[in-house]
């Protein structure tokens, strides 16, 4: 496979992963938690490095999972203790991110991880960082990592589809039906942390937020069915990656930034032309025919 194909495949896998998880975030009105986790995951990666002394896939996933769940737990706990939700999110993730940045700057000479890389990603280098088994290259590491996380995400969603659906749309009903809502919440946050860290290394923290929220919010404008919304947001994520990559190569700018911008453009277009919830249709309806 060519260099371009690997990059497109990576970006598409990020798009699909984020689209699936992001759908539930948008429906549960927890979009800003993704912003929080995408920042605090940095601490998880630094922590994993300090414990294991290398930046390999598994230890990074574990570190991110721990810090991601810690972030969720702290936000929840502060909220229970009377701190309003937006402020709780704001305090927790900025503090964890700050600790991460300080740790990086203290170990800067030894860690191959600068904060800029973490924020902007280095998707352009993905194809060169290949996984070798028995001396034979079997494709970029990032692809395997993203594929692995995708398998987990699909498994969780298919396995507990009904539970996810009910608890996202009608929390009280889910509680009454005896669905373990707290467990579902933490499973979703676990999925979010894994998705974030797997995407993080190749596309950076900000793009993860764009990929999680924007395609899902766009899909939310197009459809009223959860299953359609899941597929739609994954497809929009892939489409945005393709367009973004093309823009980035033409103008020679940051790939992850261009992908974020193209998700925004797709959202903006959908805002007007979406069949049921688009603005054009609403205005046409209002004006007497």
């Amino acid at each position: 496979m060519s260099y371009t194909m690997w990059i497109l495949l990576t970006a598409s896998l990020v798009g699909i992963n984020c689209g699936l998880v992001g759908t539930f975030l948008v429906l549960r009105k927890m979009s800003m938690l993704s912003d929080a986790i995408s920042h605090s995951v940095l601490l998880g990666i630094v922590g994993a490095y300090m414990v294991s002394h290398h930046l390999q896939g598994v230890s990074m996933l574990v570190g991110a999972l721990i810090v991601g769940l810690l972030t969720t737990f702290l936000v929840q706990w502060l909220h229970q203790k009377g701190v309003q939700n937006d402020a709780a999110i704001g305090v927790v993730f900025t503090c964890l991110f700050a600790i991460g940045v300080v740790l990086i700057s203290l170990f800067a000479d030894r860690v191959h991880l600068d904060v800029e890389h973490a924020l902007m990603g280095e998707i352009a280098f993905v194809p060169w960082d290949v996984l070798e088994v028995g001396g034979k290259s079997i494709g970029p590491k990032a692809i395997w990592l993203l594929g692995f996380v995708l398998a987990i995400n699909i498994f969780c969603i298919v396995f507990a589809y009904k539970e996810f659906k009910i608890s996202s749309f009608d929390y009280e009903m889910a509680v009454t039906l005896g669905i373990p809502v707290v467990l579902i919440h933490y499973v979703l946050m676990g999925m979010l942390s894994l998705t974030t860290v797997a995407s993080f290394d190749s596309v950076g923290a900000i793009l993860v937020v764009a990929m999680l929220i924007v395609p899902s919010a766009t899909a939310y404008l197009w459809t009223d069915r959860l299953s359609v919304m899941l597929i739609c947001s994954a497809l929009i994520g892939v489409l945005a990656s393709m367009i973004g990559y093309m823009i980035a190569t033409v103008f020679n700018v940051s790939i992850s930034g261009a992908i974020a911008v193209s998700t925004g453009v797709i959202f903006f277009i959908s805002l007007w032309i979406a069949p049921k919830h688009g603005l054009l249709r609403k205005w046409l309806k209002k004006s007497p025919a």
Partner: peptide
């Protein structure tokens, strides 16, 4: 919440591009 997230990430993406 989603609106804030959309604007934040898309604007920042544009910033990175620039």
């Amino acid at each position: 919440d989603a609106a804030i997230g959309i604007v934040l990430s898309v604007f920042f993406g544009l910033g990175i591009v620039l």
